[in-house]
């Protein structure tokens, strides 16, 4: 049963969502100074990620404390999960597109082209209520985050500084969290689900450390 883990997992996601919005704010702030296109992708991506995590956590908490009919609660949990998957897929797709543009500066990916798979998800929304589709969505996110973590590894091999190492570890933990959540769903293990949530939180805490630490550089 996954339901008993709704409250702790939601609380973890609220913290992760707040950190994601913090990263989005700093990316937006630094974009205003540098005009970097990559930061635009990062800012929008983390904003969607933060909104997705907070929306999912809010709906889960509502479901957990809602004593109405069981069928309503299940529908709410499925809706929250679907919303979370769509927003997270869009978020990680945008961040991954940002990395692609960074790598191929000479031929930047068209924005509409980058978002095409997300738009395509719209018409099949009702299907998202099926567990199989939810798991597929989780798998898509896992692939996207793994790609971002790989880009983080490339950045670390180039830069070899503490900030790129923190970002690499953060995305690796977030990828691990999605693996845990996917395994939790397939094996119907609430424990694996919470492990996934904890790894996700650890990843976002590392991002918070990175934002605070990098923000202190200019002050010294």
């Amino acid at each position: 049963m996954v339901e008993p883990y709704l409250v702790p997992n939601s609380l973890l996601n609220i913290v992760s969502g707040a950190v994601a919005l913090g990263v989005s704010y700093y990316a937006f702030r630094y974009r205003r100074v540098t005009g970097s296109g990559f930061l635009r992708y990062l800012s929008v991506g983390f904003m969607l990620l933060g909104v997705g995590l907070l929306a999912q956590a809010s709906l889960y908490l509502f479901a957990a404390f809602n004593l109405a009919r069981v069928t309503d609660r299940i529908a709410l949990i499925y809706s929250a999960t679907a919303l979370y998957l769509v927003l997270q897929s869009a978020a990680y797709l945008i961040i991954a597109a940002g990395y692609t543009v960074r790598v191929q500066k000479g031929m930047p990916m068209d924005r509409a082209e980058a978002l095409a798979p997300v738009v395509a998800v719209g018409p099949v929304m009702p299907l998202l209520f099926r567990t199989l589709i939810l798991d597929t969505g989780e798998l898509v996110i896992l692939v996207l985050v793994s790609f971002i973590a790989f880009q983080g590894a490339m950045a670390y091999s180039e830069q070899r500084n503490r900030f790129s190492l923190i970002v690499l570890l953060a995305f690796a933990l977030i990828a691990l969290s999605h693996l845990g959540e996917l395994a939790g769903s397939i094996l119907t293990s609430g424990f694996l689900y919470v492990i996934g949530g904890t790894a996700n939180l650890a990843g976002f805490v590392l991002l918070l450390v990175f934002v605070i630490w990098s923000g202190r550089v200019g002050s010294s």
Partner: peptide, 8 residues
């Protein structure tokens, strides 16, 4: 510092 973490 922020951008260097992403290799930019």
């Amino acid at each position: 510092s922020f951008l260097s973490a992403f290799g930019v």
